[in-house]
Nucleic acid binder design. Structure first.
Lengths: 337, 337
DNA sequence: AATTGGCACTCGGGTTAAACGAGTGCCAGG
DNA sequence: CCTGGCACTCGTTTAACCCGAGTGCCAATT
């Protein structure tokens, strides 16, 4: 059904369409790629490809353009991830070189990815689950209010205000702080729940409600909420890449944290490059867009996701190459610091 | 030269143009607003207004549209800030109610402003200059690396990695930490420089290079860099408000931190509502846009700026009302926490 | 069975021409 | 100073038209 030449034709159609944005006809195909057959033959092949749903024509008397299914086949079987050029690799290094803080790393990664691919970049903050506790600090703000500061072994700091049910005095704070640090120091945050389960027993009964409030904030807010932090950049690139329709929709989707979560979550927990094409994206209003995503982290742990979003008509090999390279490099940086 | 009726005509033209997006002619003017004169009279007035540069016609045989100068006059003399409706005020409260952390406050403010005005919102993080030090924490990360954590009396936490010139042991860290806290606790950050000037003298000579590194980071990075943090949102609104040209340009400008700084910086240190119309904006590629900005902060201190950006053809009274109201409300929240 | 050249057909895009109409400027009269 | 009248301008819309890229099909060839 699909012999080699037909596949070659599909590949050629996609390459041409991606670079010209215009439907591609049988004649220009044989010219630009040296297929040693006549346009008529290509037409027959194209008819078959259309029959099978890999390409379609916008209207009669126009050339063919790839369908989502066509891109899917292309990505799965007809292309390979394109390694970056030396210049691009150097760009990555210089771009990310001066980033010490996590905020900095994430921000720069977004800009870098957007610039490299000329599309929209989406980056999720690394999860805290695999980090360990280095220090817990409690700072009184007001009679019924504490500030909880968590410092991890990866040098990250998270803070959060805590509303206390009762008033609390300096001594109790100090005691609670000491207890917390004894219990949790060096422990992975993923185990935090079990670490502190018997903590209230070691405190004065009167302090227990307050301690409970602190713990619940620590467990729920700090660790979980953090993963919801996702930033994007390169929206300006949307304006040029004449998104057939619904630039509006795309921008709205990007500004919804929940949508971004869903977008990155879809690809599961894998660290592998994942490509979602057009309607494969569950998110309404993001059909017409493709998302290339991957996990990243220090070593082989997947701490978060990053992705590039663009029109279905995108340079998949190049984009995949950029995403993979950036993910790896960011992984190194996280591992070092 | 400019009698009352001519001013009324200008106001009417602006109101109509803002709501319809279309050049407005003499006839529809007398209909929609009950000016008790004939279209011909209005035409004469319009001729004068055009002569003076307040309005212009896109082409012969079309109605008039306001010029930047026309909007300027409108804002300065023909309109007043429109107070928010009850529903809008309630929206502000519910929207900002659950925000405890600063991050949260800023993020929500951006979304709120964008939604309220249906335009792009820009919010700068509050300056740390007026805050006081509550606690300084030093955490060893690696032999030559420290994490510096600063906690302010307003419950804000800033962290930053510090590269040390020499190795440092636990005791020296503890000593340095103690010294820092003694010197700085309760002191306003604005005075931080003078507070620590004699600190190195109280340390072992061997520790002085390390201490200097820590101090420079504390002074330069934490306090100053923080003010550069500016976020924006509501880009989706740009898509609808058919920015005559250069949506591309606007998006690019918004993604440049430097540009945003300049945008907010222009209006000086005032807490007052400031309106920059079209070409009044120094930023290239943001002609065609207007910016309504104001300072905000706890009490009467101006800690940062926030702004709304939209096409010159915007609802100035409404936008100004929203900006002022939100700024005030955010101020209250900052003052409480 | 696959390939090829030939040929009629389709249809979107671009061009030209004409009719339309909103809006203007000007003027003469109230 | 205001008003009604009127000629004029010019962008927009509509219609008719042609052009050409591209297709599908078929019969002939390999």
């Amino acid at each position: 059904m699909l012999d080699d030449r037909k596949l070659a034709v599909l590949r050629a159609i996609i390459e041409d369409y991606v670079s010209t944005t215009e439907p591609v006809g049988s004649k220009s195909l044989v010219e630009r790629h040296n297929l040693d057959v006549s346009p008529a033959t290509i037409r027959n092949d194209m008819a078959v490809l259309e029959e099978l749903g890999y390409i379609t024509q916008p209207h009669t008397s126009a050339g063919r353009i790839p369908t989502d299914k066509g891109y899917r086949l292309f990505v799965d079987r007809l292309s390979s991830v394109k390694p970056l050029s030396g210049a691009e690799r150097r760009a990555i290094e210089t771009f990310l070189a001066g980033a010490y803080e996590l905020d900095d790393v994430v921000t720069r990664t977004v800009r870098l990815l957007a610039q490299l691919t000329r599309q929209v970049a989406v980056v999720q903050y690394p999860s805290l689950r695999r980090s360990s506790v280095r220090h817990v600090e409690l700072v009184p703000l007001a009679p019924g209010r504490l500030l909880l500061v968590l410092i991890t072994d990866t040098g990250r700091v998270e803070q959060r205000g805590v509303e206390l049910p009762d008033k609390i005095d300096e001594d109790s704070i100090a005691h609670l702080r000491a207890m917390l640090n004894v219990c949790m120091d060096g422990q992975p945050l993923a185990d935090a729940a079990s670490m502190v389960v018997d903590l209230p027993g070691q405190l004065e009964p009167g302090d227990r409600p307050n301690a409970a409030a602190v713990l619940s904030v620590l467990l729920e807010s700090l660790v979980e909420r953090h993963e919801e932090k996702i930033v994007f950049g390169g929206a300006a690139n949307l304006a040029t890449s004449d998104f057939s329709k619904g630039l509006q929709d795309v921008l709205e989707a990007l500004e919804e944290q929940v949508v971004l979560m869903r977008l990155l979550g879809e690809s599961g927990d894998t660290a592998l490059l994942t490509v979602k094409i057009g309607a494969e994206n569950a998110v309404e209003g993001l059909h017409g867009a493709s998302v290339v995503s991957t996990g990243y982290g220090a070593g082989d742990q997947v701490l978060a996701k990053l992705a590039v979003l663009g029109p279905t008509r995108m340079d998949y090999p190049g984009t995949m190459g950029a995403v993979r390279a950036v993910a790896r490099y960011v992984g190194h940086i996280l591992a070092e610091s």
